[in-house]
Amino acid sequence: MRIQPFDYWAAPGLNEALNELDLHGADATVIAGGTDLVLNMKKKNILPRRVISLHNLNELDFVLTDESLDNDSVRIGALSKHADLAENPFLKQHFPILCEAVGLIGSWQIRNVGTIGGNICNASPAADSAPPLLVLDAQLVLASKKGEKKISLESFFTGPGATVLEPDQILKEIVIELPKQPSAGCYMKLRRRKAVDVSLAGVAFQAETGPDRKTLAKVGIALGGVAPTPVRVPEAEALLAGRTLDEAVTKISDCAEIAAKAASPIDDVRATASYRRTIINVFIQRCAQNVLNTLKNSGGD
């Protein structure tokens, strides 16, 4: 399993990386932790001529809060490793769904090296960070020598392994607004082996109440591994949004059915499409139940 030779350069900083990509982006591949890329090079799926490593960009390994008048947000650097994010106290408090999901990626060894930026940019339909970030309405900051651009994660993926990222751009950071009212989320994934295997299907469910703490102001439902990209399911969200917590509970099974119908899973050696659809249905019910309970206990007096 030899890897084909390539030219290599480790960028000492972000500006240097962007300069180099400006000159050579079109025939270079960037590498962060390499857990996807090295595997793909070993399997000869990707044969880069030139590799630019971002692993020294400590300036992109951070979790920071931005406080502004109307919307506080958290910024996560693209080079942050899954193991650190899973244990980050601030994220655990505000976005436990994200910590749960990245804590389920691969094994401890993979989480110590793999980055959240790599997970997103690799654009696997089953990337575990994607469904939680989708339901949290995450924004991505893409950087190039020409400047920075902010886009929604939802508009980033274009197909399996494909994104809107230009050859001279890198993902710099992920921005998520902090919830203003009580919120809760839950992520569940199906895989064959407990560790290591990528998911066969993943479900993220996130909800936030209104100021009354009894009505669902926002509901986010997203699926991984059952469509060409990770996807949100607005039809299923709409069924619950605006309802009281008590009403919403009675609609969970309808909601799960709609979401399972919206999925377009495939048959492959690991699982059949109909099994994946069934699992989506079950996971949505469990996630919703869990989230609504949490909100009921935390809010409604």
Partner: peptide
């Protein structure tokens, strides 16, 4: 162990 953390050395490029 890389800086005290377990990693898969089969997936790490030496320059890392």
């Amino acid at each position: 162990l890389l800086n005290g953390k377990p990693v898969h050395s089969c997936l790490i490029l030496a320059p890392y």
